[in-house]
């Protein structure tokens, strides 16, 4: 056990280094964005003098290195700065949206992870049957379309004439849980459809990959049933790749939902980052980007730790 703790500590330290490098890239990236916030805010009619004055007031004229160090030290103190557009603290802006994004991610994951594991296991059990082919074909179809297309198809099917679910997942008026699940159903279903295929196919492939192993043959020769062979003999050894692909998909559910949020007008981080880029509201863009990077690092770290925990060869040394 101590070496697992040591590994977690090592990976956390490495994660911090990664985040530091990412912070540099984010800062440089936003620097490279064309356009100028002061110009954008004051409009075409502004005189060069007023633009210069505003730039001075916002500190946009300081050297890049100074601004980077200021930004980073503020963040280390927990201060993400203030939105240039509306003067609200970035942390507050992000906070509200983060809750919404995480809720949607959780909603989608609660459907897609169990669904894809179950389908993957069943496809492996009934490999090369009609069932297997049908599941594979459906999964491939759903990831082959762009997300917005899937989203519009679902809107057409479920929000059109019949109107079973709303096509706009607005969260106005603080809906309760039941109402939330209803309103956010279509975005969650879209995300489920675009993520299930990866996880299902990895589960299936990881299990089938092991079925030629001598220990699987041994289990067969012990008279163990096919379902138990898959669940007890193959699955525990296939966990590492499955956990990894789940972690990647969870990260995607948090950071990659921009398009889906825009289509359904869902007030999450994706919407926020799109709006902020349009307005050249750099503190918000930088804050959200750093948060996304943090989510990736944390989820991958979790995946590595879980993969280690699932492997007796790493857990129980000779």
């Amino acid at each position: 056990m101590p070496h697992v703790l040591r590994m977690i500590a090592q990976r956390l330290a490495l994660g911090l280094v990664t985040l530091f490098v990412v912070s540099i890239i984010i800062f440089l990236g936003t620097e490279l964005l064309p356009g100028d916030f002061a110009q954008q805010m004051l409009g075409q009619a502004a005189t060069p003098e007023t633009v210069a004055a505003l730039r001075e007031r916002l500190g946009l004229n300081d050297p890049m290195l100074v601004r980077y160090v200021d930004w980073l030290t503020d963040i280390l103190r927990g201060d993400f700065g203030v939105s240039l557009a509306n003067g609200q603290p970035v942390a507050d802006l992000i906070g509200r949206r983060l809750v919404n994004t995480l809720s949607l991610a959780l909603y989608a994951a609660a459907i897609s992870v169990p669904l894809s594991l179950a389908l993957g296991i069943l496809a492996a059990l009934f490999r090369n049957t009609l069932f297997d082919r049908f599941v594979n074909a459906s999964a491939l179809t759903s990831i082959s379309f762009p997300e917005f297309f899937v989203a519009y198809i679902l809107i057409f099917l479920f929000a059109g004439a019949g109107g079973m679910f709303p096509s706009m997942a607005s969260l106005r008026g603080d809906p309760g849980l039941g109402e939330y699940l209803h309103r956010a159903f279509l975005p969650a279903l879209t995300l489920t459809l675009v993520t299930t295929a990866y996880m299902m196919r990895m589960t299936r492939a990881a299990i089938i990959n092991l079925l030629a192993s001598p220990y699987i043959e041994m289990a067969r020769l012990k008279g163990i049933s096919p379902m138990r062979i898959i669940l007890r003999h193959a699955l525990p050894n296939a966990l590492a790749p499955i956990i990894n692909v789940i972690a990647l998909n969870l990260a995607y559910l948090i950071t990659g939902v921009v398009v889906v949020e825009v289509v359904f007008v869902y007030p999450g981080l994706g919407q926020l980052i799109v709006d902020s880029v349009t307005a050249r509201d750099m503190p918000v863009v930088q804050g959200v980007a750093l948060l996304f990077a943090g989510a990736y690092v944390l989820l991958n770290l979790t995946a590595d730790v879980l993969a280690t925990l699932s492997n007796p060869r790493l857990m129980h040394r000779r």
């Binding site: 192993s213 001598p214 220990y215 043959e217 020769l221 003999h233 050894n237 699932s310 007796p312």
Partner: peptide, 18 residues
């Protein structure tokens, strides 16, 4: 497994590592 059992060549590969 119950009335006919099998012992394989490579025990290292034929025991489930998990």
């Amino acid at each position: 497994g119950r009335r006919i059992a099998y012992v394989a060549q490579s025990a290292a590969a034929s025991f489930n590592p998990a």
